[in-house]
Design a protein around this nucleic acid. Structure first.
Lengths: 148, 148
DNA sequence: TCAAATAGTTTGAACTTCAAATTATATTTT
DNA sequence: AAAATATAATTTGAAGTTCAAACTATTTGA
């Protein structure tokens, strides 16, 4: 197996961060366009965060996304305008606003998910990653590391 | 070893894409702030691209960054104002503009590089990634895959 | 009760990016 | 060589994302 120096490791991770990550986002964005979905990737990320957040209040969603609540408010405003989400005050605590996904949003997420699924399949096939289990395990660790 | 389903693999990669990379970018941005460097991450990426591009003309740099030449022009305008880069017409082909890094920019890149180095070291140490060679190999393949 | 804490929204500003129009230079065609 | 075309970059106007700070509404705690 090829031996990687720390220097090369740094270079590869740097590449992933500044080039590959942006490229994947661009590909995903193009896919949305092709499918006639008029949403930016940030908007899709907001929808994903709503779906994945246990109690989807403004604060909780913003925290998950790593943006301020104010930023999220403007994002939700446009998603509401476009008919992707609904928002209502929590009757238990009327300071809170609970955000929900409308069917239109579920469709987009399903579409986006299956695109992701295909992308990952094609990565594993074309990369001839025999050790893909180990890759996923490593990525999982990487992911956990940064979540702490 | 834990067995990962394709579903879990997708979830982990998705997490990396939408959460972890943004978090790393935020951490790097914070580091710049802490060091008193008044540049955004996008500006640092432009500097990196200039450094890494063989013939650093506007077109070549923009291509590497995956942005339009117009966008790069505005980015270079402010970097020039701030004293990080110089720009001059190519005497061979006066349509071209060649961009160069000033010492101030080299310093920032050095700073940023060493931060990266430390981050990677700490990842490998704290994650107890015995199989880090394989992780890097896999990331390398991943990176190559998306560069095609 | 009333002060402090919490949850969201609004506003104004900065930054990033793009598309389209424009300028300048180089290359190709006639 | 002149005209047309292609290439390289800049400018302009608009849209999207984000933040910080000021503000409103509601709840909690002393």
């Amino acid at each position: 197996m090829k031996k990687y120096s720390r220097e090369e490791a740094r270079k590869i991770i740097n590449e992933l961060l500044v080039e590959i990550f942006n490229r994947i986002l661009a590909i995903e964005g193009q896919n949305l366009k092709d499918k006639g979905i008029k949403l930016s990737m940030s908007e899709v990320h907001v929808l994903e965060a709503i779906e994945l957040t246990e109690e989807p209040t403004m604060s909780n969603i913003a925290k998950r996304l790593g943006i301020t609540i104010g930023s999220l408010t403007t994002a939700i405003n446009t998603l509401y305008q476009k008919g992707y989400v609904l928002r209502e005050r929590d009757p238990e605590d009327r300071r809170k606003v609970v955000v929900g996904l409308l069917p239109k949003a579920e469709d987009v997420l399903k579409e986006h998910d299956s695109f992701h699924e295909e992308m990952i399949d094609s990565i594993f096939e074309e990369m001839e990653l025999e050790k893909d289990e180990l890759l996923i395990e490593s990525l999982d660790k990487l992911s956990s590391y940064f979540k702490k």
